[in-house]
Amino acid sequence: MSSPLLSVRDLSVAFHTDDGVVNAVNDISFEVHPGETLAVVGESGSGKSVSAMALMRLLPSSARIQGTIEFDGRDLLGLSPRDMRRLQGNEIAMIFQDPMTALNPVFTVGNQLVEAIRIHNPKVSKRAARERAASMLALVGIPDADERLDNYPHEFSGGMRQRAMIAMGISNEPKLLIADEPTTALDVTIQAQVIEVIKRAQEATGAAMILITHDLGLVAGVAERVQVMYGGRLFETGPTETIYYRSRNPYTRGLISSIPSATARTERRLAPIPGAPPSAINPPKGCVFRPRCQHATDECFTEPGLRRLDEAALHQSRCHYAEQLGEMDTAASGSRT
C-alpha cells in the first residue's frame, strides 16, 4: 500500500470549560491515503467535527490537543501558524455543514472565490483568478457561472451555496478535502446531487477526502473505508463493504439498522438506537456504549480496546465481543444493495 497522505496518531482533544473538562476526542488513530475517501460516521457529539477541526488547526485556543498529525511528511501540530496557513485552503480544504452561514454575506461569491485562489497564488492576476473561479462554479454545476460570480450569497439557494463552498474548497486543488456533514443542512431532495458534485470535484482534483456524516446510508458508493465514532472514540473501522455487511460492533449495527431504506420490507420499523449519547464530561465507566448496548455484560465495565479482526488490521472494532457477535441480522444487512 502507498504511504499515507495523512496519519493521525493518538489524537485527543479536551476543552476546559466552566462545567469541567470536555473530552471531545480520545486517542483516535487513523490514516488517509492519497485519493481515497474515508467516511467518518457517528451520532451528534461523537467528536467528528472536533477531530476535523483539529486537522485544520481551527479549534479555539481553549482546546488542549495531544497526539500527532502527520500530513504529507509534515507534523501539522508543530507547524507555525504561518506555515499552517499555507496549507489551509490550499493543500487541505474544508467544506462546512451549514452553507447558509458559511459564506460572508457582505461579499460577492466571486470575491470570496477569488480571494481563496489569490491568497495562495499571489501571482495570479485578478482576471485569471476570476476565470478560474468561474470554471470552478461551472464544474460544481452552477449555470451561467460567470454572471453568478457577481451574486451575493443571499441570492443563491442553499444547494447552490454549498456548491459554491465546494468550488472554493477545490479551487486550489487540495490533496485532502474534509467535508463536514456537507448535506445535513440541505433539503433531502438535493442531498444526493450535492454528494454527486463532491465526488465529481474530488475526481477532478484527485484529492483524498474525509467525508463526515451521521448518515451511514450516504456513505455507500462514495467511501472506500468507514470509520465509526462514538463518545469521542473510534468504535469500528474497516472497508465500507465490511462495515455494511460484516460489522463486528453493536453500535455500528445499531446505526445500520436505523438507515431508512427503500428496498427494505415496508413493515420493518426503523430502529434508532435507544438512549442518548454519553456525556463528554462524565462518560460512563468502562465501555462508553455499555448503557445503550443490548449485549452488555459485566465485562463491559472495563473499557475494551480496539481489536484487530483481520491480518492487515484493516477491520478493527472496539468491543469485548467483537469476534463472538453473531452474523448480522439479514433484515439490516440486506437492506443496502
Partner: peptide
Amino acid sequence: NSDYIRTARAKGLPRRKVILKHGLRN
C-alpha cells in the same frame, strides 16, 4: 464566532485580514 469567519480562517487568510476584512466589515 460566526461561520463565515471560520470559513475565512479555513482559507488560510492571515488573521489580520480575517478580522479586518471579514469581521469588521460585518
